[in-house]
Design a protein around this nucleic acid. Structure first.
Lengths: 223, 223
DNA sequence: CGGTAGATTTCGTGA
DNA sequence: TCACGAAGTCTACCG
């Protein structure tokens, strides 16, 4: 990894055109070809960047990073005015990041105990396929009625519409024409609840810690 | 800006829990409170991070970054094993990034020449307000019929549904009950075209360079 | 502060 | 390779 702190200007042409006026920045050249241009503020996002694979060329005060993106070319051109620091570090292998608490974990917990959705449900299968994509959970209720469950960390309007799309497809099959929809999420946007009600979809607020039995159940039911 | 290259392990707790095993990383502490943990590969995205405002505490071999996120707390804990480098740089004010070619530019170009949408249209106004948000362009055709235009760089299913939501609202007004919908984008996902057809929405592929007269027109019309 | 929509979204997965 | 959906999305804008 090479780290350059320099006064420089940057020009990007590719999916769009962007110009970065001359100022002091941090330039990061990773060993996999990644190039990042960071300012001393603005958090998280680089001002400009290029993801691998890249070809890097350095001539005089110019560093040009290229990448083939379809028929066109992505190009990042850095004009160095003054180098304040230029160091390289061997960093070796990077160990992977382990995450827990994403949507998949929610889905797993609900699959393990679908009765957490506030009614007697039996899981038929996870990732139930439809011709436009898989529904997160397909269940049957105590009267053997079909129930399609969409799981989200945060449920907005799109989540409701996604489930509606799936339900349309599922109900095409006469055997499942009465399939109900349930939307489960850790948080609901008010508009999502409103839209879900108008579409006959039940909303259930869930909590991963509760589902795992790590905390007191405090189930909230909408509608 | 402070740059530390160090062998370290990182733990994040907040919206989710994440553990980063011990390895050599680049730690960036920006003057606005941003903290980034980068590996020597993986481009663009930091492995872990915290956006401002943050409170940073450094005790012995531990750096703890805190942030209040609602009722809970976001916490990034860095355990330093070995420091390979630790430097700080004054970088001063950062000049802004100027972009061209984003959706807004596409919208501007279409507003300047709505006939590029393949029929005689007159612009009534940009960002036409509805009670659920603004439609990009509102136009009238040669028969004075209303036409709502949604502009996207890439149009997927969501784009169609967004326009459908707007049309529902617009048509509530008897004066615009016959309002048509047009979806304009540089690229269309196949499913978006299919869904748009079934909803009576016309899709028009546009190109910013062509709209600006910088390249040959090569208009593609779906449906 | 909360919701909506855009982003050079990036990133992973599955067909 | 392409398309689709999640993301600690982040970020700007608007109420």
């Amino acid at each position: 990894m090479r780290l350059i702190v320099a006064r420089c200007g940057v020009r990007y042409t590719g999916r769009l055109n962007a110009v970065l006026p001359e100022s002091t920045r941090l330039l990061i050249f990773k060993s996999d070809g990644s190039v990042l241009v960071h300012a001393d503020a603005g958090g998280y996002k680089p001002l400009n960047w290029m993801t691998p694979p890249t070809a890097i060329e350095e001539v005089d005060d110019r560093i040009v990073v290229r990448k083939h993106a379809g028929k066109a070319e992505d190009r990042l051109e850095i004009r160095i005015v003054e180098v304040l620091s230029d160091v390289s570090h061997e960093m070796g292998e990077a160990a992977g990041l382990e995450k827990d608490g994403v949507e998949r974990d929610l889905q797993e917990a609900l699959a393990a105990g679908p009765e957490s959705l506030g009614e007697e449900l039996r899981l038929v299968r996870r990732e139930w396929p439809t011709d436009i994509g898989p529904v997160d959970l397909m269940c049957r209720d105590d009267a053997d009625g079909w129930v399609a469950v969409e799981v989200k960390r945060i449920a907005g309007i799109e989540a409701v519409e996604q489930l509606v799309r799936y339900l349309e497809r599922i109900r095409l099959d006469p055997a499942r024409s009465d399939c109900r929809g349930v939307l489960a999420a850790q948080r609901f946007r008010p508009q999502a609840v409103t839209l879900a009600e108008s579409r006959g979809i039940r909303c259930v607020e869930v909590d991963l810690a509760v589902l795992r039995g790590e905390r007191e159940p405090e189930l909230t039911l909408f509608s």
